[in-house]
Structures are given as C-alpha cells and as structure tokens.
Design a protein around this nucleic acid. Structure first.
Lengths: 194, 194
DNA sequence: ACTATTGTGGACTCAACGGTCCTTATTTTC
DNA sequence: GAAAATAAGGACCGTTGAGTCCACAATAGT
C-alpha cells in the first residue's frame, strides 16, 4: 500500500532549516539554491516534498509560529509573576541589539515584506500573531488577577499594546538603534502596564 | 564649458516617482523595468543620471525622509498644542488601515527589509529616522513646556517611545489588523504620554 | 558649419531565478 | 525476483534580473 524508496531526510528537520533561512534573509532574498544548501537536499526532493518555494514558506511560517508560541507559553508557565514574564519578553527582544545577526521575528519581518501583496502569507502571519497574542493575553489576565496590573484598559487593548510595542522595538533593533537607548524604553513600557 | 544635449526630464520629478515606487513595493520587489515605467525614461538615461538601482534607492530614501520631516514639521507648526499634533500623527498612521494600499512608511519598510544586510541603506534609514525624530522631539519639548506632559520620563525616551509605537502600529496596519482594534490602542498610547 | 560634449534609445550580455522532467536508485508487496 | 511505487540527482527550460555599450540626436561654443 505504501511501498517505494524511503526518504533519506527528515521532513521536519529540513523544514526547520528552511525556516531558519527564511528567518535570516526573508522570502525574496532567499533563493532556491540557498534552501537546497541549508536543507541539504536536491531540487527534485524539495519540490516533491513541499511543492514550491511558496508552499515551503507558508509551512515555515507555521513552524516558526508554533515553536514561538510554545516557547512563550513555556516561559510564561515558568515565570513567577506576569510582570516577570513580560519583562523577560521585552528584554529578550532588545537583547538582539548587541548581537551581530539581527533576525528579528519572522512574523514581523514577513508582515512587512509580503503581507500586503500575498493573501495566503497574510493569513498565515495573522494566524501566527494570533497564537502568540493568545499567550500574551494569558499573561495579561494573570497580571490582572495578581492585581499587578492596575490599568483599567481592556485586556485586548493591553495585548495589542504589547504586540505593537514588541513590533516597534524589533524595528528599532533592526534599524540599528543602540541598546542603551532601548533599555529606558523597555522600562517605560513596563511602567505603563504594571 | 557645459555644452551638450539638455536633459529631457526633470531629475527631481523622476526621483520622486522612483521613491513612490520603492515606497509601494520595496527595494527587491521593484524591478528596473518598474522604475523605467514610472519615471518615464530609458535605461541609459537612468544609469547616466543616477548610477545604479542601489544609488537611486539611497536617493529615494533621502527624498522621502526630507519631505516626510518637512510635512511633519509643518503639521507641528500648524498644531495648536503638542497633544493635538501627536494625536493627529498617530491617527494618520492607523487611518491607512481602512485604505487599500498599505504603503506604510518607507523608512520602517526599509529598516525591516534591508537595514540588517546593507550598510549604506542602514545609514540612510537611521539618518532619516533621526530627522523625523527631531520633529517629534520638538513636539515633546513643547508638550513639557505647555505642561501637557506630566511624565518625568526623559525627553529622549519619550521620543523613542513615540517612534517605537509608530513603527509598531505601522506593522500592525500592514499585517491587516482592523482599525477598530487600533483606535483604543492609540488612545492608550496618548494617555501614557499626556 | 564644425567640434566637443552630453542625452537618449535600444540591442545586447550574462548570470540567476523558480520550476520541470527524465533517468536512475532504492525500497515494499506479492 | 518481478512489479509497483516512491525518492534522488541533475540536466534542462524559459524568464527575468541588473547592468553595458554603441549608434544616433541635440545642444553650446568657436
């Protein structure tokens, strides 16, 4: 029923490699050759397994989004307080300012590069943002329950506030703004919520 | 001393057209042919006048940045209060959410697309952001003088806060987030400063 | 009018792109 | 072990990318 030569590569592992490449360079700037190199497979294998560069990209977004949301969830579960979680989140974002490779966030990058002219991509990004936002929503709810958040602003707006600020910080990091300027900014954002 | 055939096109006008194209589609996604079409000139004329696609892009960024900063300055000069100016600024950003073409801001777009792998571009973007930020700095200073801003946070941090939030809002607009979600966000941002 | 100088149009180059397809290899089922 | 099925390698394809070059056009100074 399902005979035939078995795959010589792990589809999940190869997808992960593709995702890393797209994350690093974006969609347009990543050539098929780049993908073949990092995924370590031949052109026909790639097309056989994933269909096209575009489909592979969509799957990469999904892969990123899932692991991202999972890591965030784990971080939240391991945090003592909502506030501690949020501080860690923001500081992780600006910590990239001192590193050489500023990959940012694949979802933010993609939103800026493609969302406005690729329906399928836009949908995948929005879905990813939604998943990530859900973890943040939990954190906000927890913060309200812990009475750490005194703000009367609605939970949803606070979530959007965090998402917006994370995106903004990411853009500034990518632009090359120095970390010393970003730290007071993080403090200010924290104070407006907690 | 300076004989020869005169140019049949206006270099500033053509540059403006190129800038609009880059603004709409980004650097990579704009082909030379696209540029020739919107600028209405032949390939040799373009290379003669601007050198290369890359140089033309750098000049486009500069063109954008100048007109942008000027418009912002004008808006500030025409505003009754610092607060009114800032509210207009933020609302202008999210007003794009209801329009079809979501061009965003060329500086933010470029920061996300190219800044991390193109030194010259990164420099041009940072310079542009700086010019725009300077207008915002004036607005913040004015807000402090008018005593509309009670925050003890330093002017520079407040400026970065606005820049970061504008970038964040722009990304959300581009992602396709609905305007009804963005309006409360703008209100919240305003309240954290004024 | 002639020359020097600059602008313009378009044919051309060459490399890279995403994608297809055909041959060959490897496995399972019967 | 033959047949069916799937994987892999790589030659191949048409298109498009940015950029070059050359012949021709238009101007200013002499």
């Amino acid at each position: 029923m399902n005979p035939g030569r078995p795959r010589e590569f792990n589809t999940e592992q190869a997808l992960e490699a593709a995702m890393q490449q797209f994350w690093l360079a974006g969609y347009e700037a990543t050539s098929l050759q780049d993908l073949l190199d990092v995924m370590n497979l031949s052109k026909s294998s790639l097309y056989h397994a994933y269909g096209s560069k575009h489909e592979l990209f969509l799957r990469s977004i999904d892969c990123y989004q899932q692991t991202s949301a999972n890591e965030l969830q784990q971080s939240l579960d391991n945090s003592l307080t909502s506030k501690a979680f949020m501080k860690r989140l923001l500081e992780d974002v600006i910590s990239e300012a001192t590193s050489k490779k500023k990959k940012g966030c694949l979802l933010v990058n993609t939103a800026n590069e493609l969302s406005h002219r690729d329906k399928a991509v836009s949908k995948a990004v929005l879905n990813g943002i939604d998943n990530v936002a859900n973890v943040i929503k939990q954190a906000i709810k927890r913060g309200k329950k812990e009475a750490a958040i005194k703000s009367t602003v609605s939970t949803d707006t606070l979530v959007n506030y965090i998402v917006s600020n994370v995106s903004g910080l990411r853009t500034m990091v990518k632009s090359g703004v120095d970390k010393t300027e970003l730290t007071p900014l993080v403090n200010m954002i924290m104070k407006t919520v907690y």
